[in-house]
Design a protein around this nucleic acid. Structure first.
Lengths: 349, 349
DNA sequence: CTGAAAGCGCTTACAG
DNA sequence: CTGAAAGCGCTTACAG
């Protein structure tokens, strides 16, 4: 493999000049740069990342940490960030936590990310005090997407989960529902994150604002998955006196709940209305009413907030968004209610 | 940050010994190893990846290339491979092609992967002759998942796409269908891969075996997405005299087709039966009959085939599968028909 | 604008 | 089993 010395020799300059020319530093004459570029091309020279990192201290790599890439929201985030990062010349190191607590520790504790990346994107990642200490010790720039815990000095991009849940619940209230169940995340989950707490709060807020008392027997905790939604809905039905409507904390849970309802012989929305949050790819196919959240926009904005301080050569920078506050103050992106066929007024008794 | 010299000093040995002890090389006495490990722990030492790579020539990183991580199959592959790689001590560099032809070139051509990874996993990636040349020049071990083009010397893990399609089609034939449509991939797609060609072949084989002539007007090309399925089904309906059954080349297309059928006022399966391939997460929720393929197993096996030659310290090696042939001969994993509610006999006329 | 030289932090023969 | 020394292939002050 050709190395920088070969290029230097062919171009008739020093390796320092080759290095400068190839990286586009301004302190190189146009003629020299041309010669260097030609030589590099002719030799098909590619810089050695390890050597460049060791000497220069930059890794050109960003770590992206998600709970489960197979969930719709996280898939969209990673896909969008990947494009953005590669356009900006960065590599993407993927960490899929997948509920494996030990791996999560390994990722977040100093050792693994140490000197491995220039920046970190944490998506819906729950942080304990020890994690925060470890991240602080890393002394790297980072960005938070979608709630989870905040890190001092890191910007955060998210939606207003409380408001989204409130809107979903109010939609059901407006249709005339009074027995509205809620399916949400399991606080005992090792990877519990704050999202489900906020969404439960919005649900309760909306009920109270309508003069209703949240009924604990209508509030079921489960996993943020299709299966979790199915099991939660089964549990609800087992309790007897089923609700006339269900607000699930995410679309995947809502879809799982729809399956359970159908298996139980209940029709959606005639017998039970269902609403979720996300606007999942398949929400349309299933006719699911939901609160749409802008996943790709959150990803793009977060990537930009991360790369800007890194001096990333972003090819297609976004216009500065209105809500683009200083680091630490979360940037809140808007959500919107999308009414489909899974919600309707309750049947008259 | 502490470096190897600090550890060497504290342990009272040379840096060479620290390096050996930390990597578990056998040529270190037990007592020395203990002292080194204690010193490293006390100083919270973490090896610098760049320095280690430059000196050692190994990157401890694997590139995983997928067409679109948001598609069910690719999401499962990445999630499974990620766990396997991290357990084995490797980092995962993610490349999501996303239909961006230029990026694909950048990834596959020598420069980018050069000295950046120890191995490559190509998932359903179409390769041109120039790509094959570039991969050959990289001189790295690799593995292919799910068809696409083969690379000389690289093992390949996949299902038998022809057989899977034949089974799906025969299921419809067995139910009594004769007007069976097929929705498949777009050969003009920049990222066209071979999967859809094999699946079409299986479809036609099954029809011919039943004494039927494949009808071009029942064969629609589209994208391997939900949307693609919807558009293809709309096109089918537009042609008049609709089929009594549709075999879609993947579950996402099948789901999209179901949406289009519903919107057109047709019931599944009473008016039109639908079958896909995959056994997508939501196939159950939608009652979709499909040919299940073992995504996670393909991923695990491929990861193992890639890591073994790399000497990866795999913590939980799989038992050697029966079909584990020598590199170059594809390992074919079994599929199975899962009958749900989306298929039924055609209505009597 | 350019070059000589030091240095980034490891690993690897080589010698003992 | 262990160490001294060279070397991996770049980048970065520093000097000119």
């Amino acid at each position: 493999m050709t190395k920088i010395d070969d290029v230097a020799r062919l171009a008739g300059v020093s390796t320092a000049t080759v290095s400068r020319a190839l990286r586009g530093l301004p302190t190189v004459s146009a003629a020299t740069r041309r010669r260097v570029l030609a030589a590099a091309e002719q030799l098909e020279y590619a810089v050695s990342p390890s050597a460049s990192r060791l000497a220069g201290g930059r890794t050109g790599t960003v770590a992206v940490v998600v709970p489960r890439i197979t969930r719709w929201f996280f898939g969209v985030i990673v896909e969008t960030v990947e494009e953005f990062l590669h356009q900006a010349g960065y590599d993407l190191l993927l960490y899929n936590l997948g509920g494996r607590e030990r791996i999560r520790q390994r990722v977040l504790r100093t050792a693994n990310l140490h000197k491995r990346v220039d920046g970190i994107m944490l998506v819906a990642t729950p942080l304990r005090p020890a994690d925060l200490t470890a991240l602080g010790a890393l002394d790297l720039p980072g960005v938070i997407v979608s709630s989870g815990t905040g890190v001092p000095g890191w910007p955060c991009v998210r939606i207003d989960d409380v408001a989204a849940a409130r809107t979903a619940t109010r939609h059901l209230l407006d249709l005339g529902h009074r027995r509205i169940a809620h399916i949400s995340g399991d606080p005992d989950d090792e990877l519990a994150f704050t999202t489900h707490l906020d969404r439960r709060r919005g649900y309760r807020d909306a009920l109270r604002a309508a003069g209703l008392h949240p009924d604990p027997s209508l509030d079921v905790e489960s996993q943020f998955t299709i299966d979790g939604g199915t099991r939660a809905a089964e549990e609800l039905l087992r309790r007897g006196d089923p609700p006339t409507a269900i607000f699930a904390a995410c679309d995947e849970m809502a879809m799982g709940a729809m399956t359970a309802l159908r298996e139980a012989g209940l029709r959606v929305p005639q017998d039970v209305s269902v609403v979720g949050i996300d606007d999942h790819d398949l929400a349309g196919a299933l006719g699911l009413t939901t609160i749409a959240q802008p996943a790709a926009e959150q990803a793009r904005l977060a990537a930009r907030l991360l790369l800007d301080p890194l001096g990333g050569r972003v090819l297609d920078p976004l216009a500065a968004p209105a809500g683009d506050g200083p680091p630490g103050i979360p940037v809140i992106l808007p959500t919107r209610l999308v009414v489909r066929e899974s919600t309707a007024p309750p049947r008259a008794h």
